[in-house]
């Protein structure tokens, strides 16, 4: 019991005292994961929508592929990105390895399949609902695309959350491509891994609690948005 109380005290202390080191780590985690999320969505949302709205040869294969990639092991992603970004790898000239950019790329590879698959699923659901409507009033395909996204906006929020959750909680990939370098690529998860290996278990769990707290804040924001939407009848 003392152990648990100690951990909670430590976590609270770190949050309340606004510990500079912890704050830096938290801020980097958020920056990297949000950037990865936004860039992923720029790719994955249109991709998922196209997959959901169109019927073409190879579509089922692509859907199956993205569904499978949702379960991609982060370590494998980390290693692949590492080999590509390594100075002796094909993109070594970019000098991305051991920078936040490398971590963003790795996280994008983890997020894109999730956002693509879930968007595709949601849009397909809406497509079934609205197909006749659009044919009955003749809205251009390019316009339909936007209307579907607009219509799915609250569902998309949940999808983004799933992507963000995968990104911010992931450690296997970012520790390989980021290197857990102090002040440069040390994130919440890599710091947790590091403190665990130092045997500093209470600090590791305290950081874990802070991570959980951030996840809670993000989820709460989306939850409130959805409640407001529901109140106005847009659910």
């Amino acid at each position: 019991m003392d152990f648990i109380i100690e951990i909670f005290n430590l976590a609270l202390e770190l949050i309340i005292s606004f510990d500079e080191v912890v704050f830096e780590i938290v801020w980097l985690s958020i920056k990297v994961s949000f950037t990865a999320l936004i860039l992923s969505c720029l790719v994955a949302v249109p991709l998922g929508t196209v997959l959901g709205l169109n019927r073409f040869f190879g579509r089922n294969f692509l859907i199956l592929l993205f569904n499978t990639l949702m379960g991609l092991p982060p370590v494998v992603v980390g290693l692949s990105v590492y080999l590509i970004l390594s100075r002796s790898g094909p993109l070594g000239w970019m000098n991305f390895l051991y920078t936040p950019y490398a971590m963003i790329i790795a996280q994008m590879i983890l997020i894109i399949p999730i956002v693509t698959s879930l968007t595709c699923q949601k849009v397909e659901e809406l497509f079934m609902e609205y197909r006749e409507l659009f044919l009955s009033v003749r809205v251009k395909k390019s316009q339909q695309f936007w209307v579907y996204l607009l219509d799915a906006r609250y569902a998309l929020l949940t999808i983004f959350l799933a992507g963000f959750g995968r990104a911010i909680s992931e450690v296997g990939a970012v520790i390989i491509v980021g290197g857990n370098i102090d002040h440069v690529t040390r994130m919440m998860t890599t710091a947790i891994a590091m403190h665990t290996s130092r045997g500093d278990l209470s600090l590791a769990i305290a950081l874990g609690l802070i991570l959980l707290f951030i996840a809670l804040l993000v989820n709460l924001t989306v939850f409130i948005l959805k409640v407001i939407a529901k109140r106005f009848g847009y659910d």
């Binding site: 006749e132 409507l133 009955s136």
Partner: peptide, 20 residues
């Protein structure tokens, strides 16, 4: 144009439903 028997509505405002 056709008015369907069971009209469907986008999760949009009345205005947007027409604007589409």
């Amino acid at each position: 144009c056709m008015v369907l028997q069971t009209p469907t509505f986008l999760r949009l405002s009345v205005y947007q439903n027409i604007a589409v």
